[in-house]
Design a protein around this nucleic acid. Sequence first.
DNA 1: GCCTAACCGAGACGGTACGTCGAGTCTTAAT
DNA 2: ATTAAGACTCGACGTACCGTCTCGGTTAGGC
Lengths: 212, 212, 212, 212
Amino acid sequence: MAVQKSQPAPGKPAPDSTRRSEKSRRAIYDAALALVVEVGYPKTTIEGIAARAGVGKQTIYRWWSSKADVLMEAFLDLAEQSTEEAGAVPYTFPDTGDLAADLKAVLRATVDELRDPRFEAPSRALAAEGVVNEQLGRELVAKLMQPSLDLYIGRLRAAQDAGQVRPEIDPRIALEFFISPLAQRWLQHTGPISHEYTDTLVDYALHGLAPR
Amino acid sequence: MAVQKSQPAPGKPAPDSTRRSEKSRRAIYDAALALVVEVGYPKTTIEGIAARAGVGKQTIYRWWSSKADVLMEAFLDLAEQSTEEAGAVPYTFPDTGDLAADLKAVLRATVDELRDPRFEAPSRALAAEGVVNEQLGRELVAKLMQPSLDLYIGRLRAAQDAGQVRPEIDPRIALEFFISPLAQRWLQHTGPISHEYTDTLVDYALHGLAPR
Amino acid sequence: MAVQKSQPAPGKPAPDSTRRSEKSRRAIYDAALALVVEVGYPKTTIEGIAARAGVGKQTIYRWWSSKADVLMEAFLDLAEQSTEEAGAVPYTFPDTGDLAADLKAVLRATVDELRDPRFEAPSRALAAEGVVNEQLGRELVAKLMQPSLDLYIGRLRAAQDAGQVRPEIDPRIALEFFISPLAQRWLQHTGPISHEYTDTLVDYALHGLAPR
Amino acid sequence: MAVQKSQPAPGKPAPDSTRRSEKSRRAIYDAALALVVEVGYPKTTIEGIAARAGVGKQTIYRWWSSKADVLMEAFLDLAEQSTEEAGAVPYTFPDTGDLAADLKAVLRATVDELRDPRFEAPSRALAAEGVVNEQLGRELVAKLMQPSLDLYIGRLRAAQDAGQVRPEIDPRIALEFFISPLAQRWLQHTGPISHEYTDTLVDYALHGLAPR
DNA sequence: GCCTAACCGAGACGGTACGTCGAGTCTTAAT
DNA sequence: ATTAAGACTCGACGTACCGTCTCGGTTAGGC
């Protein structure tokens, strides 16, 4: 499960990645994440990252095309490490047979993650960049979000097979009832996020707003 | 409803707003919006706005505290104008008695607005800024989104009174089923937005995912 | 006798010289000369000058087109100041009636000046630059050397009128017998320079190498 | 006469010159001279020379200590080749018994050489470097100029023996009347150089400026 | 109808960061 | 062991904007 390297500015003679310094790469990831946490994304500069990592600026420009690009890889790397560290099987979704309970459990974990300060600053920064820069946005979605979304889809399909979700429902849309309200509250500061809140989302979504 | 001017950096002798040049203000709004559309938010600079507006830099710094601040006011102004232009009663929500139909109608209009290129660039820029800058984010929510959200709340309460929505539902959460998925698809490029899509959202949300 | 300002890079909107900061100009001159003396010309950088002068780099680039250009003006300014300081009538050549004595006196003064450490580093640097960069070289000749050369020509013509120099001699060539050997020894380190040496030059040049 | 290799940075384990690649050396000389002619000395870089010569940078740093050092050897090599090529006995000075004629002939040849574009760029570059870098300057004088100067001294001494030059004249100073004015005009662009000019120098110098 | 304060266009200023280039060092593979 | 190749750290380049600070020149009210 290797991290895909992003392309540096095209037209340049591609650097030889076999000779790349692993030490520098790690130092750059660490410096970038630390700076984003400490001083915020806009005040995080390529020069600052280079200085903190004890690395020449050119070494950053050689392998990445922008600050956002560095941060994205750093964040992907962080996510990978955290997953490994947690010892968890990385990409699974609980299936106890109780759809509501499973969704609530996963969403509670997501809430906790969104509040982890190690994740908050860089993921906000990346999300903001993705809003404005479509190319980066799509990369983010593909690399960071899609794997999780696929798990939701799988779980919802299983629920359909078990007769707990109506068969005509499109799981790719249904999952947004759980993900999107949480995402918007977090991204746009439109409201607080909590375990109770996500529990409520699950209940509302499964049973609908209208009386039965 | 006059646009509230934002405070310039505190500690300064407050400028006398009665002597402010209306012509400059308009020129600055126009230049800011045009530049964001033409070159994108990150490449829009205060110097660029000043030059294009034929205005001194100080005139911008005197009345606004940041690029985002200028753009926010410019955008609010644009939104106001558009509303007036449309001749519409600005802040109402249809109530035909058919909740689903009313929601679908409003969401279709929202989809159309999100696709209007005049709106897209600046509102993306502001949204992105709001993700990262909490203070600005809250201002955006309060000034740009809250009025609309309140209309949703009002309509949902009416539906509750009419027995079309279960009484224990919190309308402030319920409205997110309509707003948030659309917002996320648009903000994060996670999927296409269309009238069919929002129609589906309304149906799913009202009747729930589970079989009845 | 104003210092001619050199042209910044053409094609740029010419800066308004009436608003130029005299303080910055002085500080830049001082820093440039000091650095050339202290660390040598090649290690003198625009950044270094700016930092030492407490000035933004742009302020240098706004008014000068290169390091050599800065240094040339700084040196011209220094020369001017020194002349004023010395209280001397700036552009005269002694005429006691004794050509040999007058030439020897002036050349002895020149030798002293060439050895003054305040002058040595910058003038070497400029001379070197002028060797390789013809445009700058011609400017140097015109602004720094020509006035002195003209004085030699004047004195030699007077000597011709007085019958002390053959009338068919071209003073513009003759003066090189006094100037050029000294210049070459100094520039190219081909030999030591001293009062005795220049005295000898005068004697040899006036009376020739061949027996009479 | 083998070219003495200059010392690389001291303190390093001296490379084994018996295993040196002659092909690389030649390629480096050619590349260095070509680049100086084509793009000028300041824009000639070690990287550029290495790339053009198809050589690793280290190969240059191993054997030379600086750009000027490379160029000096390259130029010495060029001078040697040219001399051989010309088939001439390398280090002689004509002695027809007519001092004036001999000097004029040699100076005319010098003028022609100074105008040869193959020589001009590199020798200007070296001269400029020598003005500012005393160590290199002295090396240049010793290796490039001294042999010629010695020939002048020899010829002048012969002339003294023949009674054509006054015995009390120091030939080491006298020769500067022929060399230095030409050198200065060429180096500092203070005037045009031509056969007529050098002829005039010889006449003026031999017979003096004063009436006889 | 004048005075005088504030605003205005303009843009120079001290700075920070940009993205690029080259210096000189170090590592790898191949000859 | 030298070589071609090129990644590395470092420092300077010249540019773009930042936010502050003068400059005249309008442009109001308050007298």
